[in-house]
Structures are given as structure tokens and as C-alpha cells.
């Protein structure tokens, strides 16, 4: 490594696996640019798009809309794709959407046991634990125990429904609207909706 490379890593935790990964990525990026296969501006643009324009705030606005507009809620549950796309949240990993509603009798939770499929336009990129082996192996087999680890203790009278994203349809949970929120407007409601509430690992 050059001195500049050493400077790059200085101050980071020196994990050899992480350093190997960083070097691997940089080598491929430099080669791809040198060969004219990647426009560096495009690379930066797509990263910024996912950092700035997608994320759980999008999904939260869908939920708040459904909580305040019964007609929209019916549409969202019947045709999640059309209803979500109508709010402008469309694109890669959100081409086909199914929204599943939590009720006093049913609790829903989403996973992708085979990789890490996740509804990017409404929730952004998935959290690390969603992509890891513990969540993916266990949430289908012992969802109640896993949800307890997230702080969600479900009554045995409440049915748990686990949605495994095995095809091109992406799932999102419509959480229950909390009590005592009658006075909140749609923006205030959106502010209380969490990412985990829409994955199904938390209530709102």
C-alpha cells in the first residue's frame, strides 16, 4: 500500500476482513473506471439517490395516508402496487407491492430468507440485521421468540403471519394506528411511524 492508502485506513478500526473488503472494492472501482465501464458521476448519483430520496420516511407517509383516508387504505390493501406508486414511491425493488395489515387479531412480519429482498422505494435499503443469518433463519421458525428480542411480546391469541419475499413481490406491514392519536394530522402521524413498524418487528 502507498502512504495515501495507509492514511485512508488510519483512524478506522483495523479489522483485516474490513480492510480486505475495502481494497477489493477500490480495486474493482478503479479498474471499471479505467476501462470506461463506469461513469464516476453515475456511481455517486445512484448512492446519493438511495441515501437522500428513499428510506422509511416514504413508507411512513404511505402509512399515515392509510390511517387518515379509509378509501386509500382499502386501495393500499387491495392493490399495494398502484396505491404506493400513486404517491410517487416506485422503482427498483418496489415494482410489485403487497401491504399487509396488522390488527388486534393478526401480526405480520416480513423477511427474505434466501437473500435480502426489501421494498427499497418505501423503506430504503435494509438494516444490517435484516440481511444477517440470525433474523433470516429464525423469524420463519420462531417468530414469537424473535419478536420478543425486539421487545414485542405478542399474545398467544394473536396470529403471527410471516411473509417470506421469495419472488418479485415486496411486502410492507401496515401497523396499527396507536390509540390517542386522533388529534394528529397526517404529517404528525407519519413522524411516529418507524421502519421496524413497517417490517413488523415493532409496533407503532
Amino acid at each position: 500500500m502507498s502512504d495515501q492508502d495507509n492514511d485512508h485506513f488510519h483512524g478506522h478500526v483495523h479489522d483485516p476482513i474490513e480492510e480486505g473488503a475495502a481494497l477489493r472494492v477500490r480495486a474493482l472501482e478503479e479498474l471499471a473506471i479505467a476501462k470506461g465501464l463506469v461513469d464516476p458521476a453515475a456511481l455517486e448519483s445512484v448512492i446519493e439517490y438511495y441515501e437522500r430520496e428513499t428510506g422509511p420516511r416514504n413508507g411512513a407517509s404511505v402509512v399515515a395516508h392509510a390511517w387518515t383516508d379509509p378509501t386509500f387504505k382499502d386501495w393500499l390493501l387491495r392493490d399495494g402496487t398502484a396505491a404506493i406508486h400513486s404517491m410517487g414511491f416506485k422503482g427498483y425493488q418496489g415494482e410489485h407491492m403487497r401491504v399487509v395489515e396488522n390488527t388486534p387479531d393478526v401480526h405480520n412480519v416480513i423477511v427474505c430468507t434466501l437473500c435480502s429482498c426489501y421494498p427499497w422505494p418505501v423503506l430504503g435499503l435494509p438494516p444490517a440485521w435484516y440481511k444477517g443469518p440470525a433474523y433470516r433463519s429464525r423469524i420463519v421458525r420462531e417468530p414469537r421468540k424473535v419478536l420478543t428480542e425486539f421487545g414485542l411480546n405478542l399474545s398467544k391469541h394473536r396470529k403471527v403471519q410471516v411473509w417470506d419475499s421469495t419472488a418479485e413481490i415486496r411486502f410492507m406491514v401496515l401497523p396499527q394506528r396507536p390509540e390517542n392519536t386522533d388529534g394528529l394530522n397526517v404529517e404528525e402521524l407519519a413522524a411516529i411511524v418507524t421502519r421496524d413498524g413497517m417490517i413488523g418487528t415493532a409496533s407503532v
Binding site: A21, L43, E51
Partner: peptide, 17 residues
Amino acid sequence: TFKDTWQRRAFGLTQSL
């Protein structure tokens, strides 16, 4: 969204290619 800079680059690189 990304914990480390190299993860950012890795994501952008795959999408770009």
C-alpha cells in the same frame, strides 16, 4: 444507510455496472 465508505462505493459500483 451505509456504515462505511467502502460499502457505499460497493453498492454504487454494482448498480452502475
